[in-house]
Amino acid sequence: MRTIKVALAAFSLMAGLCSIAAAQTWPGKPITMVLPFPAGGSADVVGRAMADEMGKRLGQPVVVENRAGASGIVGASYVAKAPADGYTMMFTTTLPIMTNQFVYAKLPYDPRKDFALISQVATGQLVLAVHPSVQAKSVKEFVAWAQQNKGKVNYGSWGVGSAAHLMGAFLSNSRGMDMSHIAYKGEAPMLQDLIGGQVQMAIGSYMSIKPYLESGKLRALAVTGDKRIGTIADVPTFEQAGLSEPEFRPVGWLVLVAPAATPAPVLARLEKEAIAAANTTAVKARLQVAGLEAMGTTSARFREDYQSAMPVLERVVKASGARVE
């Protein structure tokens, strides 16, 4: 028995030393950054800027790979099952790693166990926008209009369980509007259908919606968060518009994660370079255009915020009625 214990201890020591040795030579080849949504949205633009800046610091290219579909599940599942060698990470919204566990009865990965949290890169406000054909200049007018057109109004989102879906569902259910939800594979296709009039309302990131507000193709009625967005200061927050429930006040995170078993020294390096990249002039410029604010948090702060957000998200999902069996 003693011989077996000694052998196991020796094996563990050797495994640890091998892990340290591998981390010391890492990275020795390009790193893949998976984005679980289509190209073109604000998260995609910021993710590519982060990949570029992190690549410069790591001394190896960080190659962006879009793996969209099923509310981020396709990309998240791929990363969760990828080799935990430091050569695969994911830049994402909170949808696949936080919200989905409360929306879907079953997932092909465990959001709480299958990912190592690296850093919260940025946070930002969302905008509720409508097609110009909608006869409403405020949220209250939109609610009244939708109530008069029950069963005829569609709202879009970038996926089941996304902030756009949950807020839209809560708005519809709490105000008796009976709107129909249309889920898309990402923000870009959602906005294309909103511009085309296939859906009458959607909630999206400021950067993605901004060009269409400026061209008159969309009209903004409210923004999430505690303050107005400077460049559209005439648009009130939900609370200022008369919708004071906390479900209308969330802001989104853009975060970086890796497979859970990635060696600690590699995670520490990724954390260091992610924080540095988030605070570069190039990334901040992208964030500013998108109406986002740089965070660049430590992994410890990320874990703390993750845990505190769990009960809030669970409550919002239940209130919205969003559930996929």
Results as ranks from 00 to 15, higher is better:
residue 258 A to N: 06
residue 305 D to Y: 14
residue 266 V to G: 01
residue 239 E to I: 14
residue 263 P to E: 05
residue 265 P to H: 11
residue 243 L to A: 10
residue 246 P to K: 04
residue 230 G to H: 11
residue 250 P to Q: 09
residue 228 R to F: 02
residue 242 G to V: 02
residue 259 P to N: 08
residue 269 R to A: 04
residue 244 S to R: 03
residue 235 V to A: 08
residue 281 T to R: 14
residue 269 R to W: 02
residue 279 N to D: 14
residue 255 V to H: 05
residue 237 T to Q: 01
residue 250 P to N: 09
residue 244 S to T: 10
residue 267 L to V: 04
residue 255 V to T: 14
residue 301 R to C: 13
residue 283 V to W: 00
residue 274 A to P: 03
residue 273 E to H: 13
residue 237 T to D: 02
residue 237 T to N: 02
residue 292 L to S: 02
residue 284 K to F: 08
residue 298 T to F: 11
residue 283 V to N: 00
residue 247 E to L: 06
residue 246 P to A: 05
residue 260 A to W: 03
residue 233 A to M: 09
residue 242 G to M: 01
residue 272 K to G: 08
residue 264 A to S: 11
residue 236 P to S: 05
residue 277 A to E: 00
residue 274 A to H: 04
residue 247 E to H: 05
residue 301 R to Q: 15
residue 263 P to I: 06
residue 234 D to S: 10
residue 248 F to M: 14
residue 306 Y to R: 05
residue 266 V to N: 01
residue 248 F to C: 10
residue 263 P to T: 02
residue 265 P to F: 11
residue 270 L to P: 06
residue 301 R to L: 15
residue 242 G to L: 05
residue 304 E to K: 15
residue 281 T to G: 11
residue 281 T to F: 14
residue 283 V to E: 04
residue 246 P to T: 07
residue 281 T to D: 13
residue 295 M to D: 13
residue 295 M to K: 15
residue 307 Q to G: 15
residue 240 Q to P: 11
residue 230 G to T: 10
residue 237 T to V: 01
residue 250 P to V: 09
residue 250 P to D: 09
residue 305 D to H: 13
residue 306 Y to Q: 02
residue 271 E to F: 03
residue 284 K to E: 10
residue 284 K to D: 08
residue 248 F to T: 02
residue 265 P to V: 09
residue 259 P to D: 05
residue 293 E to S: 05
residue 302 F to N: 00
residue 268 A to R: 10
residue 244 S to I: 05
residue 288 Q to W: 03
residue 229 I to Q: 09
residue 307 Q to S: 14
